[in-house]
């Protein structure tokens, strides 16, 4: 295809070995999904890649479903990931992984936190919260490689439950062949979190990494 740099105002093709790498991040407002996406985006940019991101705004406040389309590479043009073309489905909440399952690529990887956050709609009683086993079964129908991880428990072990997003990043850095190095990801975490929280976040990252290593060995 012709280069898309006919005009100064349009997309410039960068010298970028990665043409397209898509990560779909989902979760519940307040869980740190936006922060996780920001960490990956910053790392990718610092690694010299072109980066595009699209997040859900609008009426969703704390407690609502949150999603971020993250696209890395020289041949990405639109901010939204096409259906079935997310290399990674990264979900901080089990039900929120299924909610966006159509974005996952069959030969991609799903990394899913097993800690459920029950929505208030369950209070009114029309639908119950599905079991984690049921959710894992569904995801496996759409994605070949699925990693279920209790990121909440590992985050508590690291010293702060709020680091569950960084636990997941650690797991992803082992389980996925990312266009970003582990060092770049760690640097981006350091630049994003408050200084006093760097240590606990590094621990959380390592716990996630180790978990994925063990999980993959056992597969």
């Amino acid at each position: 295809m012709a280069t898309i740099s006919v005009d100064k105002t349009t997309i410039e093709d960068k010298e970028d070995v990665v043409e397209e790498f898509n990560i779909f991040v989902s979760g519940v407002g307040g869980q740190g999904a936006l922060t996780a996406a920001g960490i990956i985006a910053r790392a990718a940019k610092n690694a010299g890649h072109n980066v595009l991101a699209a997040e859900t705004h609008g009426m969703a406040q704390r407690g609502g479903s949150v999603s971020v389309h993250l696209r890395i590479g020289s041949k990405v043009y639109a901010p939204l990931i096409p259906l079935g073309r997310a290399h990674v489905l990264f979900s901080l909440e089990p039900v929120e992984a299924v909610r966006y399952i159509e974005y996952a690529s069959k030969d991609g990887v799903a990394i899913v936190n097993t800690k459920p956050l029950v929505p208030p709609s369950v209070n009114l009683g029309s639908l119950s919260y599905p079991s984690i086993e049921q959710i894992a079964e569904i995801i496996k129908k759409f994605v070949d490689k699925v990693i279920m991880i209790d990121a909440y428990e590992l985050a508590v072990e690291a010293g702060n439950p709020l680091t569950n997003n960084v636990v997941m990043l650690g797991a992803m850095s082992h389980a996925v062949n990312l266009p970003i190095t582990i060092e770049e990801l760690k640097k981006s975490i350091e630049a994003t979190v408050p200084e006093k929280a760097i240590e606990v976040n590094m621990k959380a990252f390592q716990l996630g990494y180790d978990y994925a290593e063990k999980y993959m060995r056992e597969l």
Binding site: V28, Q61, P82, L83, V98, L127
Partner: peptide, 25 residues
């Protein structure tokens, strides 16, 4: 990609999901 069948397959499994609509804080 057969988007229609992908969408109908995902619609089917999503039937069991409790919705998470925006709510007052």
């Amino acid at each position: 990609v057969d988007f229609d069948s992908l969408l109908s397959k995902s619609e089917e499994v999503k039937k069991i999901l409790p919705p998470r609509p925006p709510v007052l804080c």
